[in-house]
Structures are given as C-alpha cells and as structure tokens.
Amino acid sequence: MRGARKILGYQLRDIARNRWVIGYAAILLLLTEALFQLGGDGGRVVLSLLNLVLIFVPLVALSFGTLYLYNAREFIELLLAQPVGRGAMFAGLWGGLALPLSTALLAGVGLPFLFRAGSTTIPARSLLVLLGTGVMLTLTFTAIAFLISLRFEDRARGFGLALLVWLGCAVVYDGLVLLVVTIFSRWPLETPLLVLTLLNPLDLGRVVLLLDFDVAALMGYTGAVFQRFLGTALGLGIAGLALVLWTALPLLLGARRFRRRDF
C-alpha cells in the first residue's frame, strides 16, 4: 500500500501538469460558465450539464485512459524493475489517472457554481448528484480503459475498442433499448427496463440524475416505477452497487491481468 501511495503521488504530479487534463478542466469550466452566462439559473445549468457529463466524461476517461497507459508502457517497465509489487503499481497508476480526471471534472464544473454560491438559486442536491455521477463515471471508464489497454498490445486496436465501448454505452445501447420497447410494447416493460438501465452505467447515471430533477414527472408511469425503486433504500443500494460494480469489475479484471502479464 505504501508503494501504491508513492507511485500515486508522482503520477498525480505528472498528470496534473498534463496539458490535456488541464485543457479538459478548462473546457468544462468554459462550458459551465457559458451556460451560466446564457441560461442563468442554476437548475437549468445543471440540467444542461447532464448530457455533457454523461457523454463527454466517459469519452475523455476512455480515450485518455487507454492512450495514457500505452504511452507509459516503458516507464511502467522501469518502475516494475524496482522493488515494487505489481498490485501497488496498478493501484498507483489507476489512482494517478482517475484522481486528476475527477479533480478536473469537479473543478471545471464546480467552480462556476462556487463563484455563485449564495447569489443564485443552486440546487445543491442535484449538483452533488451530477458531480457524484460524473466522478463515478470517471472511475468506471478509466478502469475500463485500463482493462482494454492491458488486454490489447496494439494501441490502434485498443484505442478503437475504447471508442467502440463508448459508442456502445452512449448510443447503440439506447437504440437497442428503444427497439426493445417498440417490439415488446404489449408487455409490461418497467421491470425489464429497470434491469436494462442498471446494466449500463451511462443510463443508470442519467436516470438517477433525471429522477433527482422534477423531470421525473414527465416520465409517467415508467418514471414512477423507477422512482419507487430508487426511492427505497434497497433500490438506491442496488443502483449504487451497480455503479460500484461497474468500477470494481473492470478494475479487478485489469489488476488480475496486470499481475499476470509479461512486460
């Protein structure tokens, strides 16, 4: 664990100075600020940020994560030639990536709200849910990125797969859901939809966010079913567990692969 912390420390220093990470934070900051300038009140800004966070964050986490690991290949070898365990190394690497990205998200989206603390009506709870979901998605998709780049030696293939994963989660999956809904329109679909939603971290994040807004009312009976489910401690626990699993599973698989692989 000590080893992991040391590696983490230096990774943080490296990535915090990475121009892409700084650019990422800057873009988020500019967009959030622009939304405030255009839209005004905090609630609408949070709602507008929803898609940004759901789409942009996983894309950045996936692409940056895979490229980062490919580029660090040789240095990782050098570090592994030091008296450092592989588990510690993996934890340090992942933390060293996921933490700066999360921080960039929190800073980029959070600061414009912080500037306005008190002056406008800011739905604090919704903002927290938004930021929490964003961080969770960062953790999940950096873990998936690590798994991909450890699984595929060829960086072009790995990067391509990362983009496919993103496309799948962000677009194709929802298209399939729509197809399922259309085909099985005669059956009660609420429970299957609930399960389908739990299976995609992006959808889960979106639904949790939407239910926190009053948009939930638009979602009619389906929304009510979701709200009832997520309104109970059990439902919320299951949703949380699903999100945690989405991070833990690729992370554990990645760590296993990292432990066993040859460099």
């Binding site: 929803l50 898609n51 759901l54 789409i55 962000a170 677009v171 929802d174 298209g175 859901v177 729509l178 809904v181 259309t182 329109s185 679909l189 609420e190 939809l193 939603t197 959808d203 979106r206 639904v207 939407l210 948009v215 638009l218 979602m219 009619g220 009976y221 389906t222 929304g223 979701f226």
Partner: peptide, 19 residues
C-alpha cells in the same frame, strides 16, 4: 414513439434521443 410506447420515456434526454 413515446406516445405509442410510454416506457420509451426512460430515454428522455439521452444522447441517442439528441441524435
């Protein structure tokens, strides 16, 4: 689509629907 299949509302504000 939503009017004919209400459960499709679960995709409200998704990237897919934006597309």
């Amino acid at each position: 689509v939503v009017q004919q299949n209400e459960p499709a509302l679960i995709l409200l504000r998704s990237f897919f629907v934006s597309l």
